[in-house]
Structures are given as C-alpha cells and as structure tokens.
Design a protein around this nucleic acid. Sequence first.
DNA 1: ACCCACTACTTGACACTGTCAATGGCTCGG
DNA 2: CCGAGCCATTGACAGTGTCAAGTAGTGGGT
Lengths: 188, 188
Amino acid sequence: MAPSSLRETVLRASVEFIAEHGADGLSFRQVAAAAGVSHQAPYHHFADRKAIFRAIALEGFTEFGEALRAASSAPDAPIALLEAYVEFALSHRGHFRVMFRRDLCDFDNDAELEAVADASFDVLLDCVRRELGERASIDDIRARATSMWSLAHGLSTLLIDGPLEDKIGPIKDRRALIHAVALQSLRS
Amino acid sequence: MAPSSLRETVLRASVEFIAEHGADGLSFRQVAAAAGVSHQAPYHHFADRKAIFRAIALEGFTEFGEALRAASSAPDAPIALLEAYVEFALSHRGHFRVMFRRDLCDFDNDAELEAVADASFDVLLDCVRRELGERASIDDIRARATSMWSLAHGLSTLLIDGPLEDKIGPIKDRRALIHAVALQSLRS
DNA sequence: ACCCACTACTTGACACTGTCAATGGCTCGG
DNA sequence: CCGAGCCATTGACAGTGTCAAGTAGTGGGT
C-alpha cells in the first residue's frame, strides 16, 4: 500500500465510526484491534487522541473548501453554496461532526488548521461580496454572511444530529427541502 | 435543603461543567468527589451516565419551551422567536450542548423527553402558521419552519462552539448582530 | 418495644480507556 | 557487517463507568 498504510487505515476507520456512532465513543484501542495491531500502534502515527481529530478536521476542511469553491462559481451562487454546504455535511458526517467541535480540536493554537478553515469561510465571504456589490457596508456583508452560514450550518446539524426528520415528517426528498429552504431564505 | 439535595447538587455541577468544558469530559466520579460523596452516590439518583444527560435535556427543553412561548406573543413574533432561541442557547450553554446531541440522550425511546422537545418545536410551528395564514400549503409551512429553525440553531451553535467570533471580527454587540441577522433573513 | 423494609450512601471490585515506558525486530546507509 | 532509524509490541499505571455487596438511619405496623 501507500506509505504508512496503518495511519490511513486508522483514519478511515475512525471517520467511519464517528459517522455512525459519534465522536465520543471512538476508542483508540478498538480501532487498533479492528486493524489487527497492538493498542499502541496507532500511537505512533497520532501523538494522542486529539491528534486524530485534528487530522480528520484538516482533511474535512480541505475537501469542504473544495466543494464550496466548486459551488461558488455556479450561476446562482448563494443557493448553490448552501446546497453544497448541506450536501457535504450529509455525505461526510464523520468529518463534519468533528470539524466544528472546539473541544475536540482547537483551532486557536494550530495555524495550519485555522488556515484551511479560514479558506472555506473566505469562499462564503467572497460570494456575499459579489452578491452585495462593491459599496455594501461591512456590517451588511457581515450580517449577510452570518445569515447564510447560520442557515447552512443549522440545517446541516439538524439533519445530521437533530430531530428535524421526526418533527417535520419524513423527508422523501431531502434535496427538495434543502432547495425550498434555500429559495425561501436567500431570495434577493 | 430540598428533598434529595444531592441530586440537585450533581445536576447543577454537571450543567456548569458542560457549559465550561463540554459534555464529553464530564466525569461522574469527579462531580461526586467535588460534592464530597463517594463515587457511587450519584449513581443512586441517576441510573447511568445517560440518565444525567437526559435530566439536563429535560430541564433544558422545559425552560426552552417557556422562553419561546413568551417570545411568540411579541408583536413581531418570528424575529422575537429567533432572538429568544439564540438568547437561550447563550445563557444556557450547559443545557443547550446536551439538548441536541442524539448520542447523549435519545428521544426515540423516551416519550416524556420527546414531548417537551415537541412542545418547543410546536411554538415555532404555530408562529409560522400564524405568519403564513390559513391557506398556506403544508410544504410552504414546512420550508418556512425549517428555515427559521435552521437559522436560529445554526447561529446558536456557531456562537457557542463555532469559529464565528474569530471569523467575522469581534462581536461588540451580539444582540445587534443577532437582530441584524433576524431582520435580514426573516423580512417578509 | 421490636422488627422489618426502605432509602441514601459507602466500599470493593471489574473491564475498559488513554497514555508513559521499555523492548524487540526490520531495513537501510556506511 | 553493524549501528541507527523507524515501526510495532508488551507491560504498567491512573482514571472512568458500572456491577455487587454491605452499612447507617429512618419510619411505620403490630
């Protein structure tokens, strides 16, 4: 396999586990056992428990940024962006569940992680700037960006972890709902 | 003190801990030690670790519903509701961090918990129904409710756990930002 | 007065976890 | 050939949730 295949194995298994059972039940020793290695083997590739969450978040934000960037060049950028945001969250539960958990990985003392996270957010900010034009006030841009981000993030988390599905009835077509929400809230 | 004061002590200490350090670091034995009792004493009031999260979520949703209900009678209900939602999240971090974590407390096999959670959501649904009028289609109501809920929930989680504060600059006045977002997104 | 049941709590033990430490084997450059 | 480097192993430790059994204190019924 590729260099340091155990690292990759552990990473994949962890992401998958988190997608299914959440981040907190993740056990170093269990993934080690599942990979057929000793309980200390993963430790050689990840300094500690936090390190693996950092790696997942880093990978997540990288792909996240790419997905958002691809959507931001669509004709109706704000709507495409929101849909891409939610789409990513649903198709990358394992990553998404970690990316926004400050207690699992702290951005504050991690320039690289902060950089990729910022890059993702910059896509959104650029989109808002283009939408509102050159002479929009900084406060307007800030409010608009916060609205869009909140909407996308809230919808994502409610769909993944929240009771949304139960409360508003079965979601036959998630895409339709997401699109309706986008149209409803982002109409200019 | 009131009957079963230890239960209350443990509950308060847990909520406070979660508000500061998140739900995952919470240790039964630590709160027991802090309360000056043996490591098994709390076990008498909460069957297991999940039980305490359930209790926190129950308490949280109860107060949450009251806060929303109070706001829903305001003149501009949708905006007041969103502000109340975020306000609750910020002033009840400990509860809020637990209430929407399905892995910590599952609503599915818990009628009582589900009931209070539903009651909170019903306030929102009623508000949307009043806003859109009698002859609004079920899909419109659903989309509108989902939008409002997503916006409120996303803003709350981003303010509490997320990197929002860092990204859009220091938030001098949270209320102003929240109000701006509400106006911007919920204008009819 | 006695006993009995019940509640609130304690102590002791177990398996499991993350983590530190020391050890063992492998490959590769000199 | 051999030492240095990485990769992985085994062993140990404290801390955690949880099961099991034991111990005050309290209150009611006969």
